[in-house]
Each structure stands twice: as structure tokens, then as C-alpha cells.
Design a protein around this nucleic acid. Sequence first.
DNA 1: CCTTATTATCTTGACGTCAAGATAATGAAT
DNA 2: ATTCATTATCTTGACGTCAAGATAATAAGG
Lengths: 166, 166
Amino acid sequence: MSEDRKLDHVDKILAQWRRERPDLDVEPMGILGRLKRLSTHLGREVEAVLMQQGLSSSAFDVLATLRRAGSPHRLSPGELLEMTMVSSGTMTNRIDQLEKAGYVERILNPEDRRSVLIALTEKGLATVETAVDAHVANQHRLSQNLSAADKAELDRLLRKFLADFE
Amino acid sequence: MSEDRKLDHVDKILAQWRRERPDLDVEPMGILGRLKRLSTHLGREVEAVLMQQGLSSSAFDVLATLRRAGSPHRLSPGELLEMTMVSSGTMTNRIDQLEKAGYVERILNPEDRRSVLIALTEKGLATVETAVDAHVANQHRLSQNLSAADKAELDRLLRKFLADFE
DNA sequence: CCTTATTATCTTGACGTCAAGATAATGAAT
DNA sequence: ATTCATTATCTTGACGTCAAGATAATAAGG
């Protein structure tokens, strides 16, 4: 029956709440708690590998967005914003850092002087190309203990859940 | 067959990678990407409700940990640390803020002068008691579009995945 | 007793993020 | 043409977080 042999950290939290506040139904807390903890762990693992490539995960997000947009690897800050769930101030800051490091340049748009284009430099392209290989390999490693069926089912459920918010 | 009718944000990212880098297997990226986006959305929803209670989610984490530990609602910073996935510096900062706001007090431990106990004040207890009701109700709302079967299955898969990291 | 290692907490400095608002260019309507 | 709203980006100030190290008390071994 039970393929779960062991109480995990979240089980202990739920047990405490059930003792202290038996009136609360904490089932959703279990799901949301595990989701958050898992996301934190995965985020740290991802960050660690990208750091070895000399990139923060924030920096990688921007470079990868430019890379996968295809040649000539140029997008406006507004377009980058749409794809990354961060505020405009955060994006400005990210671009500033990447520009200082020589991974991107700001190119003035002659047709609309309000806007600029953020362009991958050669150095930026080479860096992200290597980094994405390491990143994808790492993602495989991180999910390797799930069976193919579990991965498919998890993806289905996450997609369904995520749809409520997008 | 397909109960997923619509391409979501992550599908678009994966499609870009498949076009630009068909050599990469991006299935894990789909799962991890959805997990991260979902966690970000849920975190923001949770934060919004706690803010209405006058608490950041960081502050609530600490108060809730003290509350569910049971009377007399006192734990050392070290014990709080074990339960919250943050660094010691972060915990010191959180306690400082909560103490300034009058939700907790630092009590010296006469048996070990290296350590202190963080104790919920009356105000802190009353605040967290109300906040946890709102928080749990919010968690129900956030997960209400998943069926009971989906919730159970998602919890099972998250538990299994999380076990790799804890 | 000393000395040394360990434990518990706090401090410091650097980042990444956000909300709110500033700046500046463009578009729309008269 | 002029005004007004909109769009695009950047600036500012405040937070929360972390890694690394500082401080101080206790424990353990000789």
C-alpha cells in the first residue's frame, strides 16, 4: 500500500499543526509546503551549477532568453520582461550587470528612441552556449530519480495547477 | 487523449529551445520550469494575504513555527533555524524585526549564556492565530481547482521528488 | 586548571528583488 | 500644431537573503 516509508520535514510540520490546531485542514499546506521546499532546493542546485559557469541564475535567465529567441539574439528590455516574471527595475539591473561583464550591449533603436535592443555579444553567446549544456545536464540529474511515468504525471499536474495563475 | 488544450508559457520556451537547439532534451526543463513558476505565483499569493494581516511571509514563518511548537511557544534561534531553510544571519534579522514589532522577545537562557529563547508575546500569539486562519483558508483557495485525486497524486509525487534533497 | 575545540548567536558587506515614481519619446485627438 | 495619454526604460529607496567571519560561552582532554 504505502510506498512512503518515512515521515519527511513537511509531515512533521503538519503533525504539529494537527496537535495544536486540530480544527485546521492542513492538506493543502502539505502540498504547498512541499512545492516550496522542493523549489528552493532545486533553485539552489541550479544556482550552484551556473555559478561554476560564472553566471548567476538571474544572469543566465536573461542570456538564455536572448539565445533561444534565435539570431540575431536581440530583444528589447520590454520583451525580456514579458518572458521572465521580474519587475522592470530588476530587468534594468540585470542588463546593467550583464553589460558591465561584456555579455550584452545596449543598441539604440533609431526607429523609436524610447527603446533599446539588448544584444548578445560574442562573449555572451559563447558563454550561454556552454552554460545551457551544463544547465540541461544538471536538470536531467536533478530529476533522474523520478520514473518516466512519474515525470509525465508530475508535468501534467503542474501544468494544470499553473494554468490557474497564467 | 489530450486533456491539455493550450500551450502555456513554458511550452513556448521549450519550443524555442527545440528550434534553436534540437540536440537538447528539454523534458526536465519543462517540469522544473513549471515548478519554479508555480512556486513563484503561489508565493506571491501567499504573501498578499499575509500582508493583509500585517506580516511578511518571512515574519509569519517564524511566528508560525513558534505557535505550532506548542505552549509556552519558545524556541532558540538554533531550533528555529533547523525548521526554516534560512541562514543564521537571516534568522537573526528576522528575530530583530519581530522583536522591534513586539511579536517576540528574546529571553536569556540562564543555563547556557550562549543561547537565548525566542518567545511569542501575547500580541504575537494573537496575531499569528488570526493569520494562520487566513493563511490556511488561502491555501485552500489556491488549490481548489485541483480534484481530490489530483491533489493526492501531486502530493505523492512532490514527496518523492523532495526526498532526493532532504 | 589550562588549552583547544565546539557550539550558539550575531555582525558585516554584497546581492537581487520590488514598488513607486521619474524621465523621455511617441501617438492620438482635436 | 498642441495637448494629453500612453509606452518604454530607468532611478530610487527599502527589504530579505546569504556567505564569511566575529564574538562569546561551554565542553573535553590532558
